[in-house]
Nucleic acid binder design. Structure first.
Lengths: 149, 149
DNA sequence: CTTAAATTTAGGGAAATCCTAAATCTTGAT
DNA sequence: ATCAAGATTTAGGATTTCCCTAAATTTAAG
């Protein structure tokens, strides 16, 4: 079904690139990513290469990075998981935006899609996270039935 | 504070050994652990050696394994996290025992102690998980903001 | 006391993540 | 237009985690 599998770090990079490139319309540069994750630029280049190999990015060496349609789709799936968790932390535990994001980041990669879907369903398929950013609906998360990933 | 750090797998082994050795009073054998985790006995021996090095187990080669006081303490902490998550899944999403355990297993290692404590507090510091096994109170999770006598 | 079964030891391997040093490319100042 | 400074990539490794096979060792059953 998927055709590729992402490591945890790769998902973090993909989500970050989506937020900057798509949601903030910024140019995404290796150094910025490196600074964000507190790693060396060479490390970023390597991850970029892997995400490119998986057809999620288009990387123009020494220039910039862009998401492919597939990359955008995958990033939205990942961000949906992350943000559904934020909705939960914010509502259930009254966490502020900062903390909701922090705790969601620790488990978003490990939480199963069916778990996320159940939380999503509980909250009536919310369209935005606590900081008002979009949560894109996922076809696997319907209002009626329960299914596996 | 801790003096040791556990890998994810090590926490799984420690919890399993606690469940079998302490909660079920069984002898814990290498082969049983290997069968449970679907790995080769040699792999189990290696993990056992590492847990022993961390002073959590006493391993009598070719014979059996036992938990040290430190190992029991640590296993209870880990199982507390796991079981608090089970309480949540069971209550909030109406998961059955089997599924609560399954989903909890995926994230128990990654959920922060403060997150677990907040869920624990929400549920009034439950003493048992959905399948009635003990949840040992953790000193870091205070009762202070609960109703007084 | 023998030997089959269980276990450990020895020696590796793959994947994920990160690093340094050196090479290469881009860009802005002159 | 040129060229140095800064940004980026390449090359080559290191570490950690987790798992494996083969061979040696120990236990225990008969």
């Amino acid at each position: 079904m998927v055709g590729f599998a992402l490591t945890e770090k790769e998902t973090k990079y993909l989500m970050l690139i989506y937020r900057w490139r798509i949601e903030s319309s910024s140019e995404v540069r290796t150094t910025d990513i490196a600074r964000f994750f507190k790693v060396r630029p060479a490390t970023v280049t390597e991850v970029l290469r892997n995400l490119t190999r998986k057809k999620l990015l288009v990387h123009r060496p020494y220039r910039d990075v862009d998401l492919t349609a597939k990359g955008i789709k995958e990033a939205r799936k990942l961000l949906r998981k992350h943000r559904i968790l934020e909705v939960f932390f914010s509502d259930f535990l009254k966490y502020d935006v900062r903390r909701s994001c922090f705790e969601a980041s620790k488990i978003d990669y490990h939480a199963s899609t069916s778990l996320i879907n159940d939380i999503c369903r509980f909250y009536g398929h919310p369209r935005t996270c606590p900081c008002k950013k979009d949560i894109f609906a996922d076809p696997s998360c319907s209002n009626e039935d329960v299914e596996e990933e």
